[in-house]
Design a binder for these strands. Structure first.
Lengths: 199, 199
DNA sequence: GCAGAATCTGACCGATCGGTCAAGGTACGT
DNA sequence: ACGTACCTTGACCGATCGGTCAGATTCTGC
Protein backbone atom coordinates (compact mmCIF):
# COMPACT_ATOMS: atom_id res chain seq x y z
CA UNK A 1 0.00 0.00 0.00
CA UNK A 2 2.29 2.79 -1.07
CA UNK A 3 -0.36 5.50 -1.38
CA UNK A 4 -1.50 5.73 2.24
CA UNK A 5 1.64 4.46 3.85
CA UNK A 6 2.16 7.73 5.71
CA UNK A 7 -0.17 6.62 8.47
CA UNK A 8 -0.96 3.21 9.77
CA UNK A 9 -4.37 4.32 10.99
CA UNK A 10 -6.19 7.07 9.15
CA UNK A 11 -8.41 9.50 10.95
CA UNK A 12 -11.19 7.56 12.56
CA UNK A 13 -14.61 8.48 11.15
CA UNK A 14 -16.21 8.55 14.58
CA UNK A 15 -13.60 11.00 15.86
CA UNK A 16 -14.05 13.18 12.82
CA UNK A 17 -17.80 13.23 13.29
CA UNK A 18 -17.43 13.97 16.99
CA UNK A 19 -15.26 16.97 16.25
CA UNK A 20 -17.54 18.37 13.55
CA UNK A 21 -20.60 17.83 15.70
CA UNK A 22 -18.98 19.54 18.66
CA UNK A 23 -18.11 22.58 16.59
CA UNK A 24 -21.67 22.88 15.38
CA UNK A 25 -23.29 22.13 18.73
CA UNK A 26 -21.20 24.77 20.45
CA UNK A 27 -21.74 27.54 17.92
CA UNK A 28 -25.10 26.86 16.31
CA UNK A 29 -26.65 25.00 19.22
CA UNK A 30 -27.65 21.38 19.71
CA UNK A 31 -31.30 21.75 18.78
CA UNK A 32 -30.51 23.98 15.84
CA UNK A 33 -27.92 21.60 14.41
CA UNK A 34 -29.29 18.87 12.16
CA UNK A 35 -27.69 15.53 11.51
CA UNK A 36 -27.69 16.49 7.85
CA UNK A 37 -25.52 19.52 8.56
CA UNK A 38 -23.08 17.42 10.57
CA UNK A 39 -22.91 14.86 7.78
CA UNK A 40 -22.37 17.50 5.11
CA UNK A 41 -19.64 19.23 7.10
CA UNK A 42 -17.82 15.98 7.72
CA UNK A 43 -18.27 14.67 4.18
CA UNK A 44 -20.52 11.76 5.07
CA UNK A 45 -24.15 10.93 4.62
CA UNK A 46 -26.68 11.32 7.38
CA UNK A 47 -27.02 7.55 7.47
CA UNK A 48 -23.33 7.18 8.19
CA UNK A 49 -23.60 9.50 11.15
CA UNK A 50 -26.38 7.34 12.54
CA UNK A 51 -24.32 4.26 11.90
CA UNK A 52 -21.51 5.49 14.13
CA UNK A 53 -23.82 6.98 16.75
CA UNK A 54 -27.13 5.54 17.73
CA UNK A 55 -28.84 8.90 17.92
CA UNK A 56 -28.26 12.63 17.97
CA UNK A 57 -28.22 12.54 21.75
CA UNK A 58 -25.64 9.75 21.75
CA UNK A 59 -23.46 11.88 19.52
CA UNK A 60 -23.69 14.76 21.96
CA UNK A 61 -22.87 12.44 24.82
CA UNK A 62 -19.86 11.12 23.00
CA UNK A 63 -18.69 14.62 22.10
CA UNK A 64 -18.84 16.27 25.52
CA UNK A 65 -18.71 13.27 27.83
CA UNK A 66 -14.89 13.13 28.09
CA UNK A 67 -14.75 16.81 29.00
CA UNK A 68 -17.20 16.22 31.81
CA UNK A 69 -15.08 13.32 33.00
CA UNK A 70 -12.14 15.72 33.24
CA UNK A 71 -14.26 18.26 35.02
CA UNK A 72 -15.38 15.72 37.58
CA UNK A 73 -11.80 14.66 38.16
CA UNK A 74 -10.83 18.30 38.65
CA UNK A 75 -13.62 18.72 41.13
CA UNK A 76 -12.62 15.60 43.03
CA UNK A 77 -9.03 16.74 43.40
CA UNK A 78 -10.09 20.17 44.58
CA UNK A 79 -12.52 18.83 47.12
CA UNK A 80 -9.84 16.51 48.45
CA UNK A 81 -7.21 19.25 48.53
CA UNK A 82 -8.91 21.74 50.81
CA UNK A 83 -9.98 25.31 50.23
CA UNK A 84 -6.90 27.30 51.12
CA UNK A 85 -5.73 30.17 48.96
CA UNK A 86 -2.87 28.02 47.69
CA UNK A 87 -5.22 25.20 46.77
CA UNK A 88 -7.47 27.68 45.01
CA UNK A 89 -4.56 29.05 43.05
CA UNK A 90 -3.63 25.59 41.85
CA UNK A 91 -7.24 24.87 41.07
CA UNK A 92 -7.71 28.03 39.05
CA UNK A 93 -4.69 27.21 36.94
CA UNK A 94 -5.91 23.70 36.26
CA UNK A 95 -9.38 25.02 35.64
CA UNK A 96 -8.17 27.49 33.02
CA UNK A 97 -6.21 24.73 31.33
CA UNK A 98 -9.34 22.65 31.37
CA UNK A 99 -11.28 25.48 29.76
CA UNK A 100 -8.63 26.00 27.11
CA UNK A 101 -8.46 22.28 26.35
CA UNK A 102 -12.21 21.74 26.22
CA UNK A 103 -13.53 25.10 25.11
CA UNK A 104 -16.11 23.78 22.67
CA UNK A 105 -17.53 21.23 25.06
CA UNK A 106 -17.60 23.70 27.93
CA UNK A 107 -19.29 26.32 25.84
CA UNK A 108 -21.87 23.77 24.79
CA UNK A 109 -23.01 22.65 28.20
CA UNK A 110 -22.58 26.00 29.93
CA UNK A 111 -24.55 27.85 27.31
CA UNK A 112 -27.19 25.21 26.71
CA UNK A 113 -27.35 23.52 30.08
CA UNK A 114 -30.75 25.03 30.64
CA UNK A 115 -32.45 23.91 27.48
CA UNK A 116 -31.06 20.39 27.39
CA UNK A 117 -31.93 19.31 30.91
CA UNK A 118 -33.59 16.16 29.64
CA UNK A 119 -30.31 14.79 28.29
CA UNK A 120 -28.41 12.70 30.85
CA UNK A 121 -24.96 13.91 29.91
CA UNK A 122 -26.08 17.50 30.39
CA UNK A 123 -27.41 16.63 33.82
CA UNK A 124 -23.99 15.26 34.68
CA UNK A 125 -22.41 18.50 33.53
CA UNK A 126 -24.79 20.63 35.55
CA UNK A 127 -24.20 18.50 38.62
CA UNK A 128 -20.44 18.88 38.26
CA UNK A 129 -20.71 22.65 37.86
CA UNK A 130 -22.91 22.85 40.92
CA UNK A 131 -20.35 20.80 42.81
CA UNK A 132 -17.59 23.21 41.89
CA UNK A 133 -19.70 26.20 42.85
CA UNK A 134 -20.47 24.63 46.22
CA UNK A 135 -16.79 23.89 46.76
CA UNK A 136 -15.61 27.36 45.86
CA UNK A 137 -18.27 29.13 47.85
CA UNK A 138 -18.73 28.36 51.51
CA UNK A 139 -22.14 26.99 52.34
CA UNK A 140 -23.16 30.26 53.92
CA UNK A 141 -21.38 32.48 51.42
CA UNK A 142 -23.16 35.73 50.67
CA UNK A 143 -24.89 36.29 47.37
CA UNK A 144 -21.99 38.24 46.01
CA UNK A 145 -19.69 35.24 46.30
CA UNK A 146 -22.07 33.15 44.25
CA UNK A 147 -22.31 35.90 41.70
CA UNK A 148 -18.57 36.13 41.60
CA UNK A 149 -18.30 32.47 40.79
CA UNK A 150 -21.04 32.53 38.19
CA UNK A 151 -19.57 35.54 36.44
CA UNK A 152 -16.16 33.93 36.43
CA UNK A 153 -17.22 30.57 35.04
CA UNK A 154 -19.78 31.73 32.51
CA UNK A 155 -17.69 34.70 31.48
CA UNK A 156 -14.57 32.65 30.96
CA UNK A 157 -16.43 29.96 29.06
CA UNK A 158 -18.07 32.51 26.83
CA UNK A 159 -14.90 34.42 26.09
CA UNK A 160 -13.19 31.33 24.78
CA UNK A 161 -15.64 30.72 21.98
CA UNK A 162 -17.78 33.75 21.38
CA UNK A 163 -15.51 36.49 22.62
CA UNK A 164 -14.43 37.27 19.10
CA UNK A 165 -17.48 39.48 18.96
CA UNK A 166 -16.03 41.90 21.43
CA UNK A 167 -12.67 42.60 19.93
CA UNK A 168 -11.39 43.72 16.57
CA UNK A 169 -11.22 40.94 14.06
CA UNK A 170 -7.53 41.45 13.49
CA UNK A 171 -6.65 41.00 17.15
CA UNK A 172 -7.33 37.32 17.44
CA UNK A 173 -6.78 35.71 20.77
CA UNK A 174 -3.80 33.47 21.21
CA UNK A 175 -3.84 30.84 23.92
CA UNK A 176 -0.36 31.89 25.00
CA UNK A 177 -1.74 35.33 25.77
CA UNK A 178 -5.13 34.22 26.98
CA UNK A 179 -4.00 31.69 29.54
CA UNK A 180 -2.22 34.04 31.95
CA UNK A 181 -4.87 36.72 31.41
CA UNK A 182 -7.67 34.33 32.29
CA UNK A 183 -5.78 33.06 35.31
CA UNK A 184 -5.31 36.61 36.48
CA UNK A 185 -8.95 37.59 36.03
CA UNK A 186 -10.27 34.44 37.66
CA UNK A 187 -7.86 34.87 40.55
CA UNK A 188 -9.20 38.35 41.14
CA UNK A 189 -12.73 37.00 41.18
CA UNK A 190 -12.25 33.84 43.18
CA UNK A 191 -9.35 34.43 45.51
CA UNK A 192 -9.74 36.14 48.88
CA UNK A 193 -9.08 39.85 48.61
CA UNK A 194 -5.63 39.68 50.16
CA UNK A 195 -4.45 37.03 47.75
CA UNK A 196 -4.84 39.04 44.57
CA UNK A 197 -2.21 38.92 41.93
CA UNK A 198 -0.58 42.11 40.77
CA UNK A 199 -2.31 44.07 38.12
CA UNK B 1 -69.76 45.95 30.45
CA UNK B 2 -69.66 44.99 34.08
CA UNK B 3 -67.58 41.85 33.72
CA UNK B 4 -64.37 43.34 32.39
CA UNK B 5 -64.77 46.82 33.76
CA UNK B 6 -61.67 46.51 35.89
CA UNK B 7 -59.48 47.49 32.95
CA UNK B 8 -60.17 49.73 30.03
CA UNK B 9 -57.64 47.89 27.87
CA UNK B 10 -57.00 44.22 28.48
CA UNK B 11 -53.59 42.71 27.93
CA UNK B 12 -52.68 43.17 24.31
CA UNK B 13 -52.25 39.87 22.47
CA UNK B 14 -49.11 41.07 20.74
CA UNK B 15 -47.49 42.01 24.05
CA UNK B 16 -48.43 38.70 25.55
CA UNK B 17 -46.94 36.82 22.62
CA UNK B 18 -43.80 38.93 22.75
CA UNK B 19 -43.28 38.08 26.40
CA UNK B 20 -43.91 34.36 25.96
CA UNK B 21 -41.64 34.25 22.92
CA UNK B 22 -38.87 36.07 24.73
CA UNK B 23 -38.98 33.63 27.62
CA UNK B 24 -38.71 30.69 25.27
CA UNK B 25 -36.09 32.26 23.01
CA UNK B 26 -33.86 33.07 25.96
CA UNK B 27 -34.08 29.70 27.68
CA UNK B 28 -34.72 27.16 24.94
CA UNK B 29 -33.09 29.10 22.13
CA UNK B 30 -34.46 30.79 19.04
CA UNK B 31 -33.90 27.96 16.61
CA UNK B 32 -35.13 25.37 19.06
CA UNK B 33 -38.34 27.23 19.81
CA UNK B 34 -41.22 26.55 17.44
CA UNK B 35 -44.09 28.87 16.71
CA UNK B 36 -46.36 26.09 17.89
CA UNK B 37 -44.72 26.11 21.33
CA UNK B 38 -45.08 29.86 21.58
CA UNK B 39 -48.72 29.64 20.59
CA UNK B 40 -49.43 26.85 23.07
CA UNK B 41 -47.72 28.68 25.90
CA UNK B 42 -49.64 31.86 25.22
CA UNK B 43 -52.96 30.11 24.63
CA UNK B 44 -53.28 30.99 20.96
CA UNK B 45 -53.03 29.12 17.71
CA UNK B 46 -49.96 29.19 15.54
CA UNK B 47 -51.94 31.14 12.95
CA UNK B 48 -52.67 33.86 15.47
CA UNK B 49 -48.99 34.26 16.20
CA UNK B 50 -48.34 34.73 12.51
CA UNK B 51 -51.20 37.19 12.30
CA UNK B 52 -49.57 39.49 14.84
CA UNK B 53 -46.04 38.97 13.58
CA UNK B 54 -45.14 38.49 9.96
CA UNK B 55 -42.58 35.79 10.70
CA UNK B 56 -40.61 34.13 13.46
CA UNK B 57 -37.77 36.54 12.81
CA UNK B 58 -40.11 39.51 13.06
CA UNK B 59 -41.25 38.21 16.43
CA UNK B 60 -37.66 38.02 17.62
CA UNK B 61 -37.02 41.51 16.34
CA UNK B 62 -40.06 42.82 18.14
CA UNK B 63 -39.10 41.03 21.34
CA UNK B 64 -35.50 42.16 21.70
CA UNK B 65 -35.46 45.30 19.55
CA UNK B 66 -36.45 47.70 22.36
CA UNK B 67 -33.69 46.34 24.59
CA UNK B 68 -31.15 47.00 21.87
CA UNK B 69 -32.50 50.53 21.50
CA UNK B 70 -31.81 51.04 25.21
CA UNK B 71 -28.37 49.54 24.85
CA UNK B 72 -27.53 51.86 21.99
CA UNK B 73 -28.73 54.85 23.99
CA UNK B 74 -26.57 53.73 26.89
CA UNK B 75 -23.61 53.43 24.58
CA UNK B 76 -24.23 56.86 23.11
CA UNK B 77 -24.31 58.53 26.49
CA UNK B 78 -21.15 56.80 27.60
CA UNK B 79 -19.24 57.70 24.46
CA UNK B 80 -20.33 61.30 24.88
CA UNK B 81 -19.46 61.39 28.57
CA UNK B 82 -15.81 60.47 28.41
CA UNK B 83 -13.90 57.56 29.85
CA UNK B 84 -12.98 58.78 33.30
CA UNK B 85 -13.32 56.59 36.35
CA UNK B 86 -16.36 58.60 37.44
CA UNK B 87 -18.01 58.21 34.06
CA UNK B 88 -17.30 54.50 34.17
CA UNK B 89 -18.86 54.22 37.59
CA UNK B 90 -22.03 55.87 36.37
CA UNK B 91 -22.00 53.72 33.26
CA UNK B 92 -21.62 50.49 35.22
CA UNK B 93 -24.57 51.37 37.39
CA UNK B 94 -26.75 52.14 34.40
CA UNK B 95 -25.47 49.06 32.66
CA UNK B 96 -26.42 46.80 35.56
CA UNK B 97 -29.87 48.37 35.65
CA UNK B 98 -30.13 47.72 31.94
CA UNK B 99 -29.18 44.09 32.49
CA UNK B 100 -31.69 43.68 35.28
CA UNK B 101 -34.44 45.31 33.24
CA UNK B 102 -33.75 43.39 30.05
CA UNK B 103 -32.32 40.13 31.30
CA UNK B 104 -34.20 37.88 28.91
CA UNK B 105 -33.41 39.94 25.85
CA UNK B 106 -29.77 40.32 26.85
CA UNK B 107 -29.39 36.65 27.50
CA UNK B 108 -30.90 35.92 24.12
CA UNK B 109 -28.58 37.98 21.99
CA UNK B 110 -25.46 37.49 24.09
CA UNK B 111 -25.83 33.74 24.15
CA UNK B 112 -27.04 33.30 20.60
CA UNK B 113 -25.35 36.19 18.87
CA UNK B 114 -23.08 33.78 17.08
CA UNK B 115 -25.65 31.47 15.61
CA UNK B 116 -28.13 34.13 14.54
CA UNK B 117 -25.79 36.39 12.61
CA UNK B 118 -28.08 36.39 9.60
CA UNK B 119 -30.84 38.15 11.50
CA UNK B 120 -30.62 41.95 11.25
CA UNK B 121 -31.68 42.68 14.81
CA UNK B 122 -28.92 40.39 16.08
CA UNK B 123 -26.40 42.22 13.95
CA UNK B 124 -27.51 45.44 15.59
CA UNK B 125 -27.02 43.87 18.99
CA UNK B 126 -23.56 42.60 18.14
CA UNK B 127 -22.59 45.99 16.77
CA UNK B 128 -23.75 47.70 19.95
CA UNK B 129 -21.83 45.27 22.13
CA UNK B 130 -18.73 45.78 20.06
CA UNK B 131 -19.18 49.52 20.43
CA UNK B 132 -19.31 49.24 24.18
CA UNK B 133 -16.25 47.01 24.24
CA UNK B 134 -14.34 49.49 22.11
CA UNK B 135 -15.40 52.32 24.39
CA UNK B 136 -14.45 50.56 27.59
CA UNK B 137 -11.16 49.30 26.28
CA UNK B 138 -8.66 51.71 24.82
CA UNK B 139 -7.83 51.00 21.20
CA UNK B 140 -4.46 49.62 22.18
CA UNK B 141 -5.60 47.91 25.35
CA UNK B 142 -3.82 44.67 26.12
CA UNK B 143 -5.55 41.35 25.69
CA UNK B 144 -6.33 41.12 29.37
CA UNK B 145 -8.48 44.24 29.23
CA UNK B 146 -10.58 42.73 26.47
CA UNK B 147 -10.89 39.52 28.42
CA UNK B 148 -11.89 41.49 31.46
CA UNK B 149 -14.71 43.10 29.53
CA UNK B 150 -15.87 39.90 27.92
CA UNK B 151 -15.91 38.02 31.19
CA UNK B 152 -17.83 40.83 32.83
CA UNK B 153 -20.50 41.18 30.17
CA UNK B 154 -21.06 37.54 29.36
CA UNK B 155 -20.75 36.50 32.97
CA UNK B 156 -23.23 39.07 34.18
CA UNK B 157 -25.68 38.28 31.42
CA UNK B 158 -25.45 34.59 32.13
CA UNK B 159 -25.86 34.92 35.86
CA UNK B 160 -29.13 36.74 35.47
CA UNK B 161 -30.90 33.94 33.69
CA UNK B 162 -29.01 30.71 34.01
CA UNK B 163 -27.18 31.31 37.26
CA UNK B 164 -29.76 29.34 39.16
CA UNK B 165 -27.68 26.32 38.21
CA UNK B 166 -24.84 27.40 40.41
CA UNK B 167 -26.56 28.05 43.69
CA UNK B 168 -28.85 26.09 45.90
CA UNK B 169 -32.41 26.13 44.74
CA UNK B 170 -33.64 27.59 47.98
CA UNK B 171 -31.37 30.62 47.77
CA UNK B 172 -33.05 32.38 44.94
CA UNK B 173 -31.58 35.64 43.80
CA UNK B 174 -33.36 38.81 44.63
CA UNK B 175 -32.77 41.89 42.52
CA UNK B 176 -32.32 43.97 45.62
CA UNK B 177 -29.37 41.79 46.57
CA UNK B 178 -28.11 41.17 43.08
CA UNK B 179 -27.89 44.78 41.95
CA UNK B 180 -25.19 46.00 44.36
CA UNK B 181 -23.34 42.71 44.08
CA UNK B 182 -23.22 42.93 40.30
CA UNK B 183 -22.16 46.56 40.43
CA UNK B 184 -19.38 45.62 42.80
CA UNK B 185 -18.11 42.75 40.70
CA UNK B 186 -18.28 44.69 37.45
CA UNK B 187 -16.51 47.63 39.06
CA UNK B 188 -13.68 45.35 40.08
CA UNK B 189 -13.41 44.05 36.54
CA UNK B 190 -13.82 47.27 34.59
CA UNK B 191 -12.52 50.06 36.79
CA UNK B 192 -8.83 50.99 36.98
CA UNK B 193 -7.14 49.20 39.83
CA UNK B 194 -7.11 52.22 42.13
CA UNK B 195 -10.83 52.76 41.80
CA UNK B 196 -11.98 49.50 43.32
CA UNK B 197 -14.83 49.43 45.71
CA UNK B 198 -14.41 47.93 49.12
CA UNK B 199 -14.87 44.23 49.49
C1' DG C 1 -10.19 -16.15 -4.00
C1' DC C 2 -13.61 -15.96 -0.59
C1' DA C 3 -16.43 -15.49 3.60
C1' DG C 4 -17.75 -12.22 6.80
C1' DA C 5 -17.44 -8.18 9.33
C1' DA C 6 -17.38 -3.28 8.96
C1' DT C 7 -18.69 0.76 6.62
C1' DC C 8 -21.40 3.69 3.67
C1' DT C 9 -25.48 5.17 1.34
C1' DG C 10 -30.24 6.20 -0.85
C1' DA C 11 -34.95 5.39 -0.24
C1' DC C 12 -38.26 5.85 2.88
C1' DC C 13 -41.11 6.81 7.34
C1' DG C 14 -44.11 9.71 10.43
C1' DA C 15 -43.71 14.03 12.66
C1' DT C 16 -42.90 18.70 12.79
C1' DC C 17 -41.09 22.88 10.89
C1' DG C 18 -42.29 28.03 9.17
C1' DG C 19 -45.67 30.00 6.50
C1' DT C 20 -50.21 30.82 3.47
C1' DC C 21 -55.00 31.25 2.96
C1' DA C 22 -59.88 31.55 3.17
C1' DA C 23 -63.58 31.30 6.28
C1' DG C 24 -65.64 32.58 10.48
C1' DG C 25 -66.21 35.34 14.93
C1' DT C 26 -66.74 39.54 17.50
C1' DA C 27 -67.24 44.30 18.63
C1' DC C 28 -68.61 48.82 17.23
C1' DG C 29 -70.09 53.00 14.41
C1' DT C 30 -74.01 54.19 11.67
C1' DA D 1 -79.58 45.76 10.49
C1' DC D 2 -75.45 46.33 8.07
C1' DG D 3 -70.65 47.17 6.98
C1' DT D 4 -66.17 46.89 8.53
C1' DA D 5 -62.06 46.62 10.95
C1' DC D 6 -59.85 43.55 14.01
C1' DC D 7 -58.91 39.06 15.56
C1' DT D 8 -58.72 33.87 15.64
C1' DT D 9 -58.59 29.54 13.58
C1' DG D 10 -58.18 24.90 10.96
C1' DA D 11 -56.78 23.09 6.73
C1' DC D 12 -53.16 22.89 3.98
C1' DC D 13 -48.33 23.54 1.65
C1' DG D 14 -43.41 22.17 0.67
C1' DA D 15 -39.37 21.39 3.27
C1' DT D 16 -36.82 19.36 6.75
C1' DC D 17 -36.48 16.94 11.04
C1' DG D 18 -34.53 12.38 13.58
C1' DG D 19 -34.50 7.75 12.65
C1' DT D 20 -35.02 2.87 10.14
C1' DC D 21 -33.72 -0.41 6.84
C1' DA D 22 -32.03 -3.08 3.06
C1' DG D 23 -28.61 -3.21 -0.11
C1' DA D 24 -24.03 -1.87 -2.12
C1' DT D 25 -19.18 -1.28 -1.19
C1' DT D 26 -14.86 -1.82 1.11
C1' DC D 27 -11.75 -4.01 4.20
C1' DT D 28 -9.66 -8.05 6.49
C1' DG D 29 -8.24 -12.71 7.89
C1' DC D 30 -7.69 -17.06 5.94
Amino acid sequence: MPTDAQATSRVRPADELRQVALELFSTVGFAATSLQQIADHAGYSKSSVLYHFASKEALLESAIGPAIDDLEALLGDFVAGGRSAEARTVFIERFVDFLLGNRLAVHTFVNQGQSLLSIPVIQRANTAIRGIADSICADDAPVIENIRFGVALAGAAYMLVAGANFVDDDRKFDDVEVRPALISVLSELLLPADGRSTR
